[in-house]
Amino acid sequence: MLTFALKRLGLAVLVALTVSAVSFSLLYLSGDPASAMAGETATSADIESIRTLYGFDRPFLVQYADWLFNALQGDFGQSYYFKLPVSQLIADRLSITMLLGVCGISFALVTAIPLGVAAAVRPNSFIDRTALFISVMGQAMPSFWFGLVLIVIFSIQLNWLPPSGSGGWKNFIMPTVVLGYYAMPAIMRLTRAGMLEVLNADYIRTARAKGAGEWRVMFKHALRNAVVPVVSLAAVQMGFMLGGSIVVESIFALHGAGYLAWESIGRNDLPTVQALILVFAGFYIVFTFLSDLANAWLDPRIRVG
């Protein structure tokens, strides 16, 4: 178990380093940070001096190594726009995004797993078809448009929920639904397929032969085995969701890290964008790493060699 965890950890670190290198070079190659910093009114002499001051004239690898060295210590540099340390900016905004992510994935799991189980228990029944319908709709629904539709219905027509802001819990309801519905179809389909397979397994018959009731058979014996791949998928979806929070946060004006990313891109605030890419990638990597561990814990065939 320990070697398994260490191996996964090593891979995770390597992936994180590569992502940082790729995103750094993407932004390095595609823009001139000095002119972005100097603003539109700056003369070429101003730009030149900024370039030397911040070290943008050094070779690429030196700059990357320097940036990475600082980043590893939690220093992502200064935001061009806010003139504040990027790490502080992100730290202030991250709690909202994480809360949104947790709510979103919980909403997705709470709706997807029961629906998937119910659909698998009665294939081709009304509930199976309804679940399929919901998932097909969810996969085709552009989340930004879905968000706007919810605003029109619940904020404008019914006046139940606030359309924007991040003041209270009511602000999180619609974003949660939008973000959760984005992740739900895949989780539901995987739960259904896994349950269908597991319910045909011999050990389910054994459980019934013992006299176990249907609920016990479903949830103790079947779901436990069917849920293993769902855990991985949920982790991946959670990572995608945080990355996708940029869309949802901008629609509902939730001032989280996604909103910050959107603002920063618009303002050419490269250090902030750079750091946010790494932070979101970091979340994805941590989640998948945790899900690997969770899978090992759930599946004794991985855990006990």
């Binding site: 891979l11 992936v15 992502v19 990572g239 990355g243």
Partner: peptide, 22 residues
């Protein structure tokens, strides 16, 4: 490994950033 790296990159964010620069 490359697939893992790619999956770790937040698509919307990276796409937005690159499109913004280019």
């Amino acid at each position: 490994f490359l697939i893992n790296v790619r999956l770790a990159m937040p698509v919307v964010l990276v796409a937005l950033a690159v499109v913004a620069v280019l």
